[in-house]
Structures are given as structure tokens and as C-alpha cells.
Design a protein around this nucleic acid. Sequence first.
DNA 1: TAAAGTGATGGAACTAAGTTCCATCACTTT
DNA 2: AAAGTGATGGAACTTAGTTCCATCACTTTA
Lengths: 189, 189
Amino acid sequence: MARWEPNAPERLAQAALDLFAERGYENTTVIDIAQRAGLGKTTFFRHFQDKREVLFGRGTTNDLLAEAIAAAPPTAGPLEAVAHALDAAGRQVFTSARREFTVRRQAVIAANPELQEREALKNLTLIASMAEALERRGVPELTARVAAELGALASSIAYERWSRTGDGDDFGEIARRALDDVRAATPLC
Amino acid sequence: MARWEPNAPERLAQAALDLFAERGYENTTVIDIAQRAGLGKTTFFRHFQDKREVLFGRGTTNDLLAEAIAAAPPTAGPLEAVAHALDAAGRQVFTSARREFTVRRQAVIAANPELQEREALKNLTLIASMAEALERRGVPELTARVAAELGALASSIAYERWSRTGDGDDFGEIARRALDDVRAATPLC
DNA sequence: TAAAGTGATGGAACTAAGTTCCATCACTTT
DNA sequence: AAAGTGATGGAACTTAGTTCCATCACTTTA
């Protein structure tokens, strides 16, 4: 049994998402968030670097994707390994259980430039860790970077589609199709 | 003749870059910057949205690239149009005259996550405007997005190389080579 | 030449983000 | 029962960023 109400970070993140959705990111103070979670401002900043970070908390996605790339069959080419990673994202991030949460979160981010900045940078580090994971498979540096970029593009297209589909649809499959589309659309000159 | 010392934004930007390079972004207050430029805090925020923006002021690069893509020969493919845009960037942004400034600026950005976030988002809008410009040439949406992404990747590789070369080297040429390298490295599976 | 106009500026006062320090509280271990 | 431990909250602080208003330098009009 815990000493205090458990899961302070989760409660803060939930309170933040609710408030951001209700009245907007700008019109929500950190004190508002902490109060709704039954905590103080100090505790908020003990769990999150800053106000934006409350929406980006679990940064384990980098490792998740890198591990999936490492675990792809040795015969798989770079883009196939990336597809493997997108599959993993579908199984652990873009699940139907977390669907509503994810969609609300993305809507909040889309409404605020400060949050978009944070997401843009997180996305760059995500691309970098995919590229590194590919290099560890023996993929040449530049090819790895291109493959990671194409994977990120496919992922964002796949999110677009997934967020509009019914509950049964698997992100992994959608992402594979998106990656195929991207490959087919890649210009040669 | 101007009423006050002219070019307040330029003076502020120069003072900011100098101070950031001297003592770091975090250890420089907006008041420090304004004082060195002979101005007040209020005037700083009249010219720049926020402290980060002082390093990203002239946002005309988007239009520059879009116009260069529009002006590319009608026969040019998507990547050739992008190469045209990188040429234009070389002629107006990555010039040998602005070389020292640009390199110092990039070094300051590389040293601070807050600035990296701003740059990451600016880069996304830059990619978006290149993609739009390509679509206006009749390039299909997805192909346009991929071409713009590959162009951005080539540009960052080209900057890497350009920042290390001697003064005579032309960014446009370096970027064309980088784009060729990217194309050659693009994985098909 | 004098008066009114214009636009950039600076200062003061304010809110909110984020930090630091210290006391407290809830529960655990000795 | 007493000491220990880790999460918490409050107070006080610095800085980013906003708002409002007065002022100043120069221009235009009378």
C-alpha cells in the first residue's frame, strides 16, 4: 500500500489533459493542474521538467522503436525493419484502449505552438534513435537516416488515418500500408 | 534619416547572439540583451515574440524556397525543383558573407534545447511550404511531402559540410551533391 | 516659426513559469 | 516508542512575457 494517493504523475497528466481540452493550454496554469490533481505546484515540477512535458511524459517510445528495429528479422531491409517498429508502436502506443486519450492529446497539441515545438523536437530524437538502431543492423548511415525519415512520415500519415477509423483497426497494418504508399511515392528525380 | 538609432531588431539580434555565445542562452536575460543594444525590455518584446525568436527573426526563408521551387524549369522533376530551392538558399542565406554569423548562430542553437525546439518547428513549416510549392507544380501530395523531406535532409547534410569548408565553396553545389547522395542512399525495402 | 501629429521608446506594475529551501507529514523500520 | 525515509507543500525568489501610459524625437501642417 502506498503512503499517499498513488500515481501522482498519472493524475497530473490526466488533470492537465482535461484542463487543456476544456479551456486551452494557455488558459490553464500549473497551479490549476496541480489543484485538480490534489497536489501542489512544487510537486508538479518535481514530476515534470516543465508545463509542456506533462503531455510527453513517458519518453520510452524511443527505446520501444529502437528495440523493435533491433528485433526485426536479420534478413529484413531497412524499411522492413522500420515497419516492424511501427507495428510495435501500434501494439503499445496506438492501441484501441488508449485511442481516445491519444486523439485528445494530439488535438490539444495541434492547438498550441508551444506544444508543437516540443513534439517536433521529440520527433527528431525519435527519428535519430530509429536511425541509430538501423545503423546497428549494419545499414549505412545515410540510408539509415533516410529510412528513419520515411518511417516517421509514414507514421504521421498512418496516425491521420488511424485516428479517423473505427475501433477495430490495427495501427500496425495501417502503418504498413502508409509505408508502402510512401515508398511508391518516393521521387527519383 | 531615422529618428532614433536605426535597425533596432538587428542590433538586438546581434547583441543576443554575442551574449548567448559568451555566457550561454540560459545565463542571458532579455534585459541584458536590450541593455547591450541600448534599448529597454519593452522594446525587445515589441520586435520579437519571445526570447527565442531573436535568433529566428527573418522568417522569409519559407517564401524564398517556395518561390525558387515555383521558378524551377517546368520540365524539372520534384527533386530537381528542390535542388533549385537549395541553390536559392545558398545564394541568399548560406552566403560566404553571412557564414560566420550563421555558424555562430547554429552553435548557439545546438547548445540549447529550447532553441532546438524552435528550430525543429520552423523546419517543419519550411518542409510544409516546400511541399505546397511542389504541389502547385502538379506534384502529387505524397510525392511532394517525400521530396520536401529529402530536401530538408540534404540541406542539413549540406550545412554540415559547408560549415567545415573554406570560404570559397558554394552551398548550392554542396547541396546538390548532398541531394544526389540522399537519392542514392534511399532504400527500396 | 509654432503647433499638432506620429511612431518608436521606456518604465512601472502585473501574471505566470520555474527554482530553491525548508518544514511537515505519512508511513516504515528499528 | 523513536528514529528514519521519501513524498509533499509553502514561501520567497528570478525571469519571461503583457499591458498601460507617459515621453521623446522628429515630421507635418498651419
